[in-house]
Design a binder for these strands. Sequence first.
DNA 1: GCGTCCATGAAGGCAACCTACAAGGAAGTG
DNA 2: CACTTCCTTGTAGGTTGCCTTCATGGACGC
Lengths: 313, 313
Amino acid sequence: MDAEPRRRGHDLSRVDPRHLDLLRELADRGSVTAVAEATHRTPSAVSQQLRTAQRELGGIPLVEPHGRGVRLTEAGLLLADGGRDLARAVAQVQARWDEYLGSASGTVRMAALPSAATILLPGVLDRLTDTAVHLECIDVDIAESEYSGMVADHDIVVGHSFTGPVPAGAGHLVTAALLREPLDIAMRADHALAAKARVTARDVVRHEWYGVPLGYPFDDLRIAVETAAGTPVRVVQRLRDNRLIEALVAASDRVAVLPRYSTTPGAGLTLRPVHGMDAARWIVAILRPDRAERLAVRTVLDALRAAARDVVG
Amino acid sequence: MDAEPRRRGHDLSRVDPRHLDLLRELADRGSVTAVAEATHRTPSAVSQQLRTAQRELGGIPLVEPHGRGVRLTEAGLLLADGGRDLARAVAQVQARWDEYLGSASGTVRMAALPSAATILLPGVLDRLTDTAVHLECIDVDIAESEYSGMVADHDIVVGHSFTGPVPAGAGHLVTAALLREPLDIAMRADHALAAKARVTARDVVRHEWYGVPLGYPFDDLRIAVETAAGTPVRVVQRLRDNRLIEALVAASDRVAVLPRYSTTPGAGLTLRPVHGMDAARWIVAILRPDRAERLAVRTVLDALRAAARDVVG
DNA sequence: GCGTCCATGAAGGCAACCTACAAGGAAGTG
DNA sequence: CACTTCCTTGTAGGTTGCCTTCATGGACGC
């Protein structure tokens, strides 16, 4: 037929997948330089792409100066959202293609909290041995608020959440609750309290504690115990590394709050739940929506879930 | 962070929106040359793009020779489907962008059956006068099976269907039922039968008919009448153009099957429904899923629906 | 068997994209 | 307030990728 120019009239402001992807990346990473690094280009190249995108979209400003860097305007954010949708759609097609070629393959990059990895990684790697999926996992010790920064460079981020199965600040991200891990009181195996199946708040405030630095989420259980017992807890040291705390607890009469599954029992250490408190942390996986579509990523996610079921079962 | 190659290992077979779009176009149009014309390139360029797509996707054949041309393999069809999804996603973003910029604008290209356009186009154009949408409508007289060929070059195809509100062969297409138009018996205004509010099958077989060529959908009513009356209908002429038939009917005692709304009454012509027969044609709009997302297209579609409501009301 | 139609290939041009380099603005620091 | 640092933007020039031109070869129909 009359194969003419696709669109007549003011054909300015046509969206282009390439530009949408750029804006999505900028929304995720926050600066031109960061986008340039992530995409293996110079900042200048990225800046030029932004300029042409802006020109082709009718001259509406997409970014505006903000401090030393830039930030997306309302229009830019709108298109960045569209870029997210598009990335997800592409990833879906990629997943179907992978399935067609014969199941999952490729490398999945994961970042996990050390304590979470301790619980889950053995089971996950075991399940992946017979597949063509290569898991590349690094352990990172970061706060809940930093997860969103990690998902840009990793397919799966495994962290924890103390407020519920969905961590804070998971704006455009996909989250999958893997495991609810209760927080217990740890003590020496031959500790006086170890004789009881469950300890009370009143029991534990009588002993000195190894705690975590103020503001750390584990500290919430201490505060709850103080409230229930009506007495402040005597914290003699504030430390972060759980293995270190385990060693200290095993060598003294002092107690500490430790997560149930990631604390190795038997090494002279005993865990006891606190009666009436159901403090716990959620081990969660956080993913970018497009990454979550990849078949290999979904395979790893399934392995994580299965490994988590093994832990509670 | 370690902004490294996005994907390690055999990173072949990564899908690219550009390639998906090419395969979608090829699935829609069927030949390299047709795609080249539609996208304003030479066949050679399209062929080269296909080759690089195939190479980047791991060397899996996407097209195979078939007769003088090519046809998509199973793998190619799979990716073409993905291209459809992607086109729809892009169009959705475009629609949101258009909304952000301030409602619909641009040109919408429509193809419509003359009889359907007669009913609807006046109302549609009326509704679009105050908008920035420019409707470019051509009238085409094509069979139901050819609609799918038209949607590649037009945003909206308005046709009819006799089997129901969804025409045959609407594989990957979006369809919107606009109007159910009953088929009546037309006769001279002072015809003997015109005295009755409704005629019966037995009534109409007594008179000679102007019919349509054998196999035309309107002919179904004739067959139904014959079945009901147990007598064959005497068809004296087989013609296609409804205006011509109207003129002939108005000038004789003969009757004909004509659609209710697109037949201009009053010009010495009267329409009467056939008792017990609910023969009708559906006026339907057919669109490609991605085109259906465009705001301007949706505006025209809404105008079509509104105009259709006016007709029945 | 010849003409026609369609797809593919090689060679070369052109435009888009990127790099390198330089400049300017905004925060933090002494 | 001067200085440093960090981030972005602009210009000039090189490289790559995509497209066109021209030519070749296969498949169908007369």
